[in-house]
Every structure is written in C-alpha cells, then in structure tokens.
Design a protein around this nucleic acid. Structure first.
Length: 588
RNA sequence: GCGUCUGUAGCUCAGUGGAUAGAGCGAUGCCCUCCGGAGGCAUGUGCGGCGGUUCGACUCCGCUCAGACGCUCCA
C-alpha cells in the first residue's frame, strides 16, 4: 500500500503538471501548522525563481488545477505561497479500512529484499553483562526487527568476545586452584569430563580475581599469556577448558538476553573467525595490500579526501599475534563466505568509530567484501547517571545488568501494588514486562548516537513520554475492546466511519501515518522516531477517549466505527512496541 | 596538537530549509471523577556566540566559545 504522503504527492504532481510546472515541486509534507491544515506543499515558493512568478500565484494556479479526486476536504493557497491541505474524512476512513485489512497495516515490503547482518550484543564470555552491554542489545534488537518487518532477510549475530587474554587468565587461575584436573595433565590422553569444573558463579568470580592478580604479579601474567598462546595453538586440555567456559557462559548469557527479549540468530564469536586468519593474512601479503611498518603488518587506509591522518589497519602485531582489526576482518571473510550479506550493521559504542572506519576501508580495498556491500557503523553514546557521568553503582563500581533490571522491576512492582489490587504473582510478572518497557523505551526514545541520562525515576514513571505510559494506553484500549466483546459485540467485520469530531479525526490522522513513519525509521535507522510516533498516538487516543463516549454510544453503527478505529490503533501500537522489542501486559 | 561528535525552556529530550520552535517533568490554576484519574485543559521561560549562503536557517557553510570522546602493536 502506498503511504498517504505518497498518494497526496501524486495528486499534487498531477496538479503541478496540469498548471504547467515541474512535478518535482509537488512534495507534500506533514503540516507544521496543525491549526491551519493537515498537510502542506511548499513547492510554489521553491519554484518562484525558476518560473519568475510570485509564489502565491503559482500556488493559486496549482490549487485551481487540483483534480476532484475526493482526496481533499480543502486545498487552499496561502501567502506567501503555501498550499494548505485537509484530508477528506471519507477518504481517510477508506484508507484506514484498507490498512486494517492488510496484515502489515500498509507497510510495503522491500521490493528487492536484502540480506542484512546485524552485529550487536558483543558480550565477553565469563564476564557478567553490565550496563555497557545494554544499549547494543536494545538498539540492535530493534534495528533487527525493523529491517525484518520491511521484508529483508536479517541475521542477528551476537559476536561473542570469546578469544584472547581473558581466556588465558581463567585457565591460569583454574590451574592454580585445581591443578589435579586432567586438563592440566600433559600425559592425559583419555576423555575429558563432560561436566564443567566450575559454575557460572565461580566463573564470574575467577575472571576478576585473575585479572587483578595478573596486574600485580608479572610471572602470573606471563603464565596467562602463555596459556592464551597454547590455547590458540590447539592445546588439547586448554581447548577442553575453553569449551566448558563457553558452554557455561553461553547458557547463562542466553538466559539473560532472553529476559531482555533479545534473540540472536547466530552465536558466533571471535574464536570462530580465527581459522580464516592465516589465509587472509597470506593473501593480503601476496597481493601487496599489506606491508611491514615498525615490525607490524599493516594495510594503509588513508584516503586523499581525509583531512586528518587515519592510521593504518593493523593486521599482525610485531610479535606476530593477531588483534582486533584482524579478527573483525576475518569475521567479515566468514560472513561473506557463509551469507554474502548486502549490508552489515555494527551496533557498537561510538568510541570505536575510528577502528571500524579502518576495518571497513581495509575490507573494501582488499576485496574481502565487494564494492557494493554496505558496511554501516551504528555507534551509540554512553549511558550516564543523573550526574551526567558514566552510569555507576552507588559504590562507584560497574553496575551489573541483572542488578539494574532487578532495581527497575522492584520499582515497578511497588507502583503496581500501590495502584491496583492484583495478586502478588501477577504483579510480579507484570512488573517485569513493564520494567523492561521502561528500560527499553527510556533508551530508544533518545537518538542512538547521543549520550543520554539513565534516570530510573523518570523511566519508570507512568506519566509523560515513557514506556509505562505507552503500555497503560494499550491496556486501556484492550480493556475497552474486551468490554465491548463481553457485551456481545464482535470485533470482526467492523468498518471505520468518516470522522465527525476533531478528536476522532486527529486520532485517525495519527494512525494513518504508520507506514510513513515505519519507512522513515527504516531508512534512517532511527528507532527513536517510533517512540515519538507512538507517544503522540497515545496522546491522541487519550484525548479522543476523554471527549468521546465509546461503549455508551447509542448509535450502534457509530459505536462499531469507534471500536474498529480503536482496534486498528491498538494493532499499530502493539506492532510498534514489538519493533522496539517489548510487549504489553493484559492488565497493569 | 589534530580530528569527530554534542550544545534547544529550570531539568530530561524532540524538531523534515518554510508560517507563531515543540513535548514531558517540575510550578500554578481549573475540568471531569463516566468505558481504567496511571486522565484532560490552561498559564511561563529557550535555539552557546558572531558572520555567511538563501525569497526563507535550530536546520546548510565558516569562525569562535564550552563539554564529551578518539587519535598505529588492549578490545
């Protein structure tokens, strides 16, 4: 289905053409003067110079050539040259009914669906998730859902940090604590135990202990580095320990991401990319892309248009070890081979931008990906506390994600128990649903690239531009629809009727925007615009609700028209929050 | 030092080159208290600064001030 803006623009194009002007002037936008009109076209002013005519005259001319298509209730030329448009209520109702009949409510799938990989999450195994991982997960999940809703083949890859020094540290610490384990017996050639020699709780304690100890003790540090080296070169026992670490950690991660309503299609990690490194490095050398600089193997990625120095992409350290440029490139090799994506989107901290510029340039220059493969860096800003500084616990440490979630859930639970008399178990479940919405909406309602202030009190509030307010509105609509059905009404086959009140029309106009909004959000990768949209939609519903008797409306036809409109509004709202990555409870 | 990003109301944030720059929170006053009051209406303050491009600039460009961040062998 074409978006309403497209339809109106088509009407205007015809009018511009009929009046003898170029149709490129006919772009229609939403009005920014809702008191005057609903849609506007500014083309007459833009064309004034080319046609050497007063903008107002052009506007009048165009308006007089507007075909009587039934689309507009009114169209008028206004000084200095605006064309102000109001949609016909009947036309709007018809459009809404078409929307309601469509499974995607008017959103068109991409004509040529693309394969898009989204690299997000990026947790390190054996380390607990902390608030730093929250944004990547939330934003990436939403971007994934949006791209998928538009009909693309979208693959979410968690890209685990599962390789390197941290693993050596854990192995070393484990060896120190339990030297009797078979993994450390060089003579052992039997089957290693299936059960891991540690729990997730122990694992999460081992890493920070080892890390701190290594900073103080040089020999321990070297042992860990050596263990890392042995692991990476196929040491059988260490590899078995690594597998245990992976299993225990991934199981735990899955549990945590599930709680966040975040789901990855791939659980690949840095380790998976390692086997692509040797061939890749060799090719880069043979084909002359890489050269040695101060002992390190690098690929130059400086471009003439740069107004600053862009350091080369480093492939191998002077000691021959790979590093993160290498791993990210090898991961692209793997992705290209397995999925041949049209686009790869990296949802990572914006501070890593330079690194990704280097990797992207290197990948293109060396043919790791094709010229037309789009590599997108979607950098997000820092989550700050109320003081404007990076979010910390009261003690000043790093806040664990599960603690943050628990804190929010408890806050929600209190509010729900205060306001309603619901069973404790239900209140708890509801608190989790609403709490997640509070966190995600609080994050996603900000532009991803900006730093933002994580304010628990504000995000968990039921008033204002918050997740709970959106959910409240949805629950309210659900409640009305349920009551309508309890009284014998059916939601099937209802038709939305032309609006009679300004509130009804305003609500309709807001619902109408859905596919336009989704297209914009998709093109700009801007989930925050969904938030802005549903917030306004919720407001329009609440105003309409306040001014209109719905269930007590005596005219049955009118009442069913209202119900049809509310059903559609509910579907739009629910679809939008699903794209944001959360859901609404039945009651709250 | 070089570079990138950010600067909008007391606070937190929106804002597509177009008309009178918007919300929420906070403050004040009101409405309804009926389908869920976790509502609705109203009142006040603002685009860091200086130039430029344009018929028109919060939006584009330059300079400047302030803050955050990043600048080959950690990720």
């Amino acid at each position: 289905m074409k978006t309403l803006l497209d339809l109106i623009t088509i009407e205007m194009k015809a009018a511009f053409r009929a009046a003898g002007y170029g149709e490129e002037l006919a772009k229609v936008t939403l009005s920014n003067r809702p008191d005057l009109c609903e849609y506007q076209c500014n083309g007459a002013m833009a064309g004034a110079k080319a046609y050497r005519k007063a903008p107002f005259m052009i506007a009048e001319d165009v308006v007089s050539h507007l075909a009587d298509s039934g689309c507009f209730e009114s169209a008028e030329a206004v000084k200095p040259g605006f064309i102000n448009l109001k949609l016909s209520p009947a036309y709007a109702a018809e459009y809404l009914n078409e929307m309601a009949a469509d499974s995607k409510m008017g959103v068109e799938a991409e004509r040529e669906p693309r394969t898009i990989m989204i690299d997000y999450g990026g947790p390190n195994v054996a380390k607990p998730l902390h608030v730093g991982h929250l944004r990547s997960a939330i934003i990436g999940e939403s971007v994934k859902r949006i791209a998928r809703f538009k009909g693309n083949k979208v693959i979410g890859d968690i890209h685990l940090g599962d390789w390197g020094y941290q693993m050596g540290l854990i192995i070393t610490e484990l060896r120190k604590r339990k030297p009797e384990l078979p993994y450390f017996d060089e003579q052992f050639d039997g089957e290693y135990p299936e059960e891991a020699p540690f729990t997730i709780g122990e694992l999460e304690e081992i890493y920070p202990t080892a890390s701190a100890y290594a900073k103080e003790h040089e020999d321990y540090r070297e042992e860990a580095l050596h263990a890392t080296y042995l692991l990476q070169n196929g040491h059988r026992g260490y590899r078995a320990v690594w597998n245990h670490i992976m299993n225990v950690s991934v199981t735990d991660l899955k549990k945590n991401y599930e709680k966040l309503n975040v789901e990855f299609d791939l659980w690949k990690g840095e380790a998976d990319a390692q086997k692509y490194i040797p061939d890749m490095v060799q090719r880069l050398k043979e084909e002359g892309y890489a050269h040695y600089d101060n002992g390190a193997l690098v690929v130059d990625v400086q471009e003439e248009s740069d107004n600053k120095e862009v350091p080369p992409c480093m492939i191998l350290k002077s000691d021959g070890a790979a590093l993160y440029d290498t791993t990210d490139l090898a991961t692209l090799v793997q992705r290209e081979q397995d999925y041949h994506p049209d686009e790869v989107i990296y949802v990572v901290d914006k501070r890593q931008e330079l690194h990704f510029i280097q990797v992207f340039r290197c990948a293109k220059k060396t043919g790791i990906v094709g010229e037309d493969t789009k590599l997108t860096f979607l950098g997000f800003g820092t989550m700050n506390g109320k003081d404007g500084k990076p979010f910390k616990t009261r003690e000043g440490g790093v806040m664990r994600l599960e603690n943050l979630i628990r804190e929010i859930d408890e806050e929600m639970y209190k509010k729900i128990m205060d306001n309603r008399t619901v069973e404790e178990a239900e209140a708890k479940r509801t608190a989790e649903i609403v709490g997640l919405a509070a966190i995600k909406y609080g994050d996603l309602s900000n532009q991803a690239s900006k730093d933002y202030i994580f304010d628990v009190d504000r995000f968990t509030s039921f008033e204002g531009n918050t997740g709970p307010y959106i959910l409240y509105t949805i629950v309210r609509i659900k409640s009305i629809l349920n009551k309508y059905q309890e009284n014998g009404g059916s939601l099937e086959g209802l038709k939305i009727l032309p609006a009679e009140s300004v509130y009804e029309k305003a609500l309709m106009l807001q619902v109408l925007k859905f596919n336009d909004v989704i297209d914009t959000v998709y093109e700009e990768t801007a989930p925050h615009k969904i938030c802005a949209y549903i917030y306004e939609l919720a407001n329009e519903f609440n105003k309409f609700y306040h001014e209109t008797k719905i269930l007590s409306e005596e005219d049955e036809k009118k009442k069913s028209g209202y119900i049809a409109l509310l059903s559609l509004a509910k579907r739009v709202l629910e679809t939008c929050i699903d794209l944001l990555g959360f859901e609404a409870p039945e009651r709250m």
